[in-house]
């Protein structure tokens, strides 16, 4: 019991990422409005990015910029002193991709609105069935 409780308390940030991810998934599946679905998609994406960035955090480490950069040849660089920058670089790409998908999704939503005069999924499906 205590081990389970410790697991929950020590890894509280991971539990909150899972909560955020499930909020996004719920919005994508259960919400009726297209813009709400797009908001849910973005929340899901940022939750995944947050998880990856948090894996690079180290206790007692500083931001990944080398100290004494000009005479670095004389001193050894200790990797334990710096936060792991690899997930940051990968997630930088993911943020840019998420903005691109957001732009395309909103453009399609605007097109759908101009054709059906509504953003609600059920009303759009009804109009498609009537045709």
């Amino acid at each position: 019991m205590e081990a389970v409780l410790n697991l929950i308390i020590e890894k509280y940030n991971y539990w909150i990422y899972i909560t955020l991810m499930m909020i996004g998934l719920y919005a994508m599946i259960a919400k009726n409005n297209l813009v709400k679905k797009i908001v849910g998609m973005n929340i899901f994406q940022t939750a995944v990015i947050l998880f990856y960035v948090s894996t690079g955090v180290k206790k007692g480490a500083t931001i990944p910029i080398i100290e004494h950069g000009h005479d670095v040849a004389h001193q050894a660089v200790r990797a334990a002193d710096y936060i792991n920058p690899l997930p940051h670089v990968l997630m930088l790409t993911a943020i840019v991709v998420s903005v691109a998908t957001l732009g395309v999704a909103l453009a399609i939503a605007i097109k759908v609105y101009h054709r059906y005069q509504t953003l609600e999924e059920d009303e759009i499906l009804e109009q498609i069935r009537e045709l």
Binding site: N42, S54, I63, M91, V99
Partner: peptide, 19 residues
């Protein structure tokens, strides 16, 4: 807070701004 300053810059301009 997590020390990912480059990601924070990008998110502030791209996520909070452009989105």
């Amino acid at each position: 807070i997590m020390g990912a300053v480059d990601v924070a810059f990008t998110e502030a301009s791209v996520g909070a701004g452009v989105s």
